[in-house]
Design a protein around this nucleic acid. Sequence first.
DNA 1: GCCGTTTTCGGCCCGACTGTTTTCAGTCG
Length: 569
Amino acid sequence: MTRSLPRNAELADQLDLLADLSELLGEQGFRVVAYRRAATRIRDTAASVAEMALAGTAKDLPGIGKTIEEKLVEVVENGEMAAVAKRRAEVPEELVTFLRLPGLGPKTAARIWRELGVSTLAALQEAAEHERLRTLPGLGARSEEKILDALRKGIGSEAPTRTPLGVGLPAVRAAVEALRAHPAAVRVSEAGSVRRRRESFRDLDLIATATDPAALTAAFVALPFVAEVVAHGDTKATVISGNGLRFDLRVVPPESYGNLLQHFTGSKDHNVALREDAVRRGFSVSEYGVTTVETGAVFAAETEEEVYRHLGYDFIPPELRENSGELEAAREGRLPTLVEVGDLTGDLHSHSTWSADGKATTEEMAAAARARGYRYLAVTDHSHYLRDGRIEQQAEEIADLNARLKPFRLLRGVEVNIKADGTLDLSDDVLAGFDWVVASLHTSFDRNPTERILASIDNPHVDCIGHLTGRRLSKREGAEVDVERIVERALATKTALEINSQPDRLDMRDTHARLAGEAGALITIDSDAHSTSALGYVEYGISQARRAWLTKSQILNTRPWSEIDKMLG
DNA sequence: GCCGTTTTCGGCCCGACTGTTTTCAGTCG
């Protein structure tokens, strides 16, 4: 008997909707903030919050109290919070979309609705075109123009999109390099969510110090990739690249570079929590410095390390700055030493031309792995390409290569498909012959994914579960799996769980990986490379692992193969 | 609505920008 409980995303969306509706109705601001905080917390939680709410443990999560927990139970029982239903009856349905328009907040939207009777995007456009918005005090011609401009661009009719990290990171690095090459540049850094290596972003932030800020911003808006200049001042500029990415550059004074980098790296929630904590200790933190309230003394620093130290924290790596326990840990000196790319000793998921989609031969993959300093590489071609004697042929090839490449070791692996009925598409006899078996979902993601994965974990020949949910960023959601149960079983059977580094996968996601790590599960960071250059994708997997608070010792492939082999038994 | 090495009540980050204003509210990150 399986119950279908609302997903965390759904609970969070409903709280955000409640916040929007409450704001439009002019309700108390702090309550709205509480709803939004709770929504963020729920989105960042790996376990099922609906289940927690039913068990009465959701209120153990920071930002969730008795009242919100009750609202969550209402969603489980009735599909909707009573508070949402009540407000939806009062507020026209489309009004919340007004809030997506830049510059249009809840106060203004509410007045347009109440005083002009305008409550749809179409009516809003008409009102702006007929210059009726300017009849409201506080709104003028410029406001109407901005609203019309946004509506023409289609903003409001669809939810804002986020772009995968894999698209943004190379782009932001190229921009950093280009700016560093400019003679006026002193220091240039990526910032924002990309610096924290969040899996997706809305815009790409850069900050810099310069001998001549105006010259640097001028050079920035003239970079070859720039297709549109949205804003351009002496110390701040926003541009859009040819492929539609939005970049923000801020040039700041060198003496508070550390404070500013800290501020613009975020996250917002991290900064708010840090500042609230600072207030309790008699400090006031802004992007320009840390003020000791009693004396008025301002501490400005050129490095982030100094900023954190001044406030009584160990340095917090950007990947951890999500207000999910990092501040307390940094204060108590118990931040983990996060895993790094250089810690990896090998890769346990890769493909060769034995798979139809592989671009490099086994030998080329081995050479590339060796060039990265690896001591082993598991070639894990797809099971359905290894039929009709091809397994034996590949085994022979690998044996030959191993004789030549010693002490480097090619592992005979396979990526076996977890079928819709939960069985694997190779027999146990065949699986027993491999050094390393990765089992992955590739189809039927909505057909009992948890049970199918659990069955695979129980197979004694399966060493690792590949890309847990099968999601493809901005393409498909992936399977809704019960991570807690999977982690528990993986732990019991010594089955590893993979962090797949493909930029459009990043699967396990950060929150799942953190849960797995805290439970003590064995975790691998693999490239799933289909070409030699793609071995480098592990950088993304490492970032994901760091966001999950993982250390070197928690990652299986930071160890020699002999040790891994022994650990899995 | 949440939360507590000041507290179960009374707080709740901080500053910049914008458009509209003669001093500021609303919005944004």
